[in-house]
Amino acid sequence: MPRDTFEARLDGLQADVCEMGRDVTDRLDRAVTAYERRDPAAGRAVADADGEINERYLTLEADCIDLLALHQPVASDLRLVVASFKILTDLERVGDLASNLGGYVDAMAGDTVPSVPITDIGEMTLAQLDDAITAYETGDPRRCRDVAAADTDLDERCGAATNDLVRSLVDRSPDADVAATLSDTKRYLLTVRDLERAGDHAVNIAARTLYMIENDDALIY
């Protein structure tokens, strides 16, 4: 394959990964919004569309395998393909987490859980994802390190949200529907956990990107 054709395929792969990343980020954003608004229809729409992300993932994974198997890229080209392959897996899993969040909204019993907002957690997670995808797109090592550093703040905020919920439940009326409250509390905690996991996947994307750019595996381990 001529070098210019091969480079065009690499550029196309990177552009497709970025497009999938933006789509996954948008789905997670819509799931968080659905949770905040207690909008089961919007949550269900996110959950039901997960198959589209899975299909795109498989298509782009096949592209990576083709580039590796048939064209034997070396050095920086090889790192780009391998990083893209790994990043696709993280993006697909973020898509799964967005689908989970949408499903939690659809299954909520109502207002049994005290009002403990997750807007700031969602914004922190989405910012991490956006920065990680931008770092991959632009080849920005500083942004990769910033994504990893920001994960500590996200972890702390998720822990604080859990504590806030527990304190709210302590003050809960004894007449509350215990079964519904427990069920919705579980979903709230799963929501916080899944947003934290999405942040972890953003760090993985940044780590693979840093390795792709500078052959530096510091963030991977």
Rank of each mutant, 00 (worst) to 15 (best):
A83W: 05
I65F: 15
Y57H: 13
D66M: 11
E52S: 14
I65A: 14
I87V: 14
I65S: 02
L67P: 00
G51Y: 07
E61G: 10
A83V: 10
L78K: 05
E55R: 14
N54E: 05
F85E: 13
S84E: 10
E55Q: 12
L78P: 01
I53E: 01
G51A: 13
A75S: 14
F85T: 04
A69Q: 09
L68H: 00
C64I: 04
L67S: 02
E61P: 00
A69T: 14
K86L: 13
A83Q: 06
D66N: 05
Q72R: 11
E52A: 15
F85N: 09
A62M: 08
V82Q: 02
V81M: 06
D66Q: 10
E61K: 09
N54C: 01
L70T: 11
I87W: 05
E52V: 14
L67Q: 01
F85P: 03
L78E: 06
N54H: 05
L80R: 06
L70I: 08
A62D: 13
V81N: 02
L58I: 07
A69S: 15
Y57M: 04
N54A: 08
D63M: 13
E55S: 14
H71F: 09
S84C: 15
L58A: 15
L58E: 07
L80W: 00
L68N: 07
P73G: 12
Q72W: 07
E61V: 03
L80Q: 05
Y57I: 01
R79P: 04
L78F: 10
E52Y: 09
A75G: 10
D77W: 04
V81I: 13
L70W: 11
R79H: 10
H71M: 12
L67F: 05
N54L: 01
L68G: 04
T59Y: 02
Q72Y: 11
D77A: 13
L68W: 01
L68E: 02
R79Y: 10
R79W: 04
L70K: 05
V82S: 08
S76P: 02
E61L: 09
G51T: 05
T59L: 15
C64R: 01
A83G: 03
I53G: 01
R79F: 07
L78A: 13
S76M: 11
Q72A: 15
E52D: 13
I87K: 03
V74D: 12
R56F: 03
K86R: 15
I87D: 04
L80A: 10
A75F: 09
L68A: 08
H71P: 01
A75V: 11
D63W: 14
L67H: 02
N54Y: 00
C64E: 02
K86P: 03
S84F: 00
P73D: 11
L78W: 06
G51E: 12
H71D: 11
L58S: 08
I53S: 03
L78N: 07
A83I: 06
L68M: 11
P73Y: 06
A62T: 09
L80M: 12
A75E: 09
